[in-house]
Design a protein around this nucleic acid. Sequence first.
DNA 1: CCGGATCCGTAACGATACTG
DNA 2: CAGTATCGTTACGGATCCGG
Lengths: 203, 203
Amino acid sequence: MARFLDLLGSRWTLLIVRDLLARPRRFKELLASAPSMGPNLLTVRLRDLGHEGIVKKVSPTNEAEHYELTKKGHGLEPVIHEIVRWSLKHIEVDPDSPGVSRPDLLVVALRALFDPDRAPDVTENYEFRVDDVVFHLNMSKGKLETEFGRCPDAAFTLETSAAVLDQLGTGIIDIETALERGLATVVGDEAAFERFATTFSQV
Amino acid sequence: MARFLDLLGSRWTLLIVRDLLARPRRFKELLASAPSMGPNLLTVRLRDLGHEGIVKKVSPTNEAEHYELTKKGHGLEPVIHEIVRWSLKHIEVDPDSPGVSRPDLLVVALRALFDPDRAPDVTENYEFRVDDVVFHLNMSKGKLETEFGRCPDAAFTLETSAAVLDQLGTGIIDIETALERGLATVVGDEAAFERFATTFSQV
DNA sequence: CCGGATCCGTAACGATACTG
DNA sequence: CAGTATCGTTACGGATCCGG
């Protein structure tokens, strides 16, 4: 534990890992993710994480350089997931607090809430659109895969906004209410959506 | 995640929770657990954790006052467990580093490594003695219970020292080697010990 | 002796300006 | 855009002191 906190206990470190868990990021993206973190500190964190073999910098030719998790870094996913689960269960969010939901991080939250034991015994895809972020889940054999971008054969497409995500996160409204009020829309197979809602509901 | 780190991301905080996960502690015990933490900081941490409903101070009459986890605080166990599992898997320990194993925290490590799917289908107890710390595990119906103190009907008793625990943690030796060399001794049912070793081995 | 509170030097961090 | 340099501020480390 003590060694773990030496590596990952410094400020911002776990948030960087969380961001990279959703997808690789550019330096500027990581910086924007934590407004009060200076670029100097981000440099130090990325260097340290790189030195520990948790994060690696990738500089492809003909493509923008970015940072991504190594296999060791990706192994931190269960840790993040348990933190998310505890937080959703125990942390009250001030309804008046400024909106902070990040559409691209929804994929991490969904992965954290995914429970193989409650997974439907069917193979199907669900597509999500939150503001300008599009991703989809692939359910098959009790396994969950996530990927950014459209999904041509999704059973349904759920569309909403980050603002609504905030309200869902604070518990002001639930997903059913949001749908009734038109704050979110589901297009496609209603039964598939029910399966989704059941599989990813908080226990 | 960000809110979680606001609550529990400060230095020493998770280590305090870890200590309390093993058993309730007195102020002095917590202080001794982290040598470089000043008493002032511990006071602040305990006050903050108390304010968040994670830790509570108990002052029984005719007994020493101490701190213990609330139900909310105990809910952090899965988080700690995932951290322990990741750390055991990915963090190399310097063999020359000073001994830091804490016998009383072994119970937390064992709980972290416990996997219900690999649990034996029998009800039995295992007793452990590390230096002057004695505790036992109770296995029944795929569930694990831990308690400090002796166990009259333990299937076996494993006895060793913190120094050997260090070597086991660093991977210098494994438990079988330690037994061969007399660094640890098992008295009792050999088959039960095998079941133990299998259930709690790292995957 | 235990459970803190006070004080101060140091290290880490936050914000902004600057450079290749 | 991806960092580096600088500096003011905050948090922490270590020691000392105080009340029950």
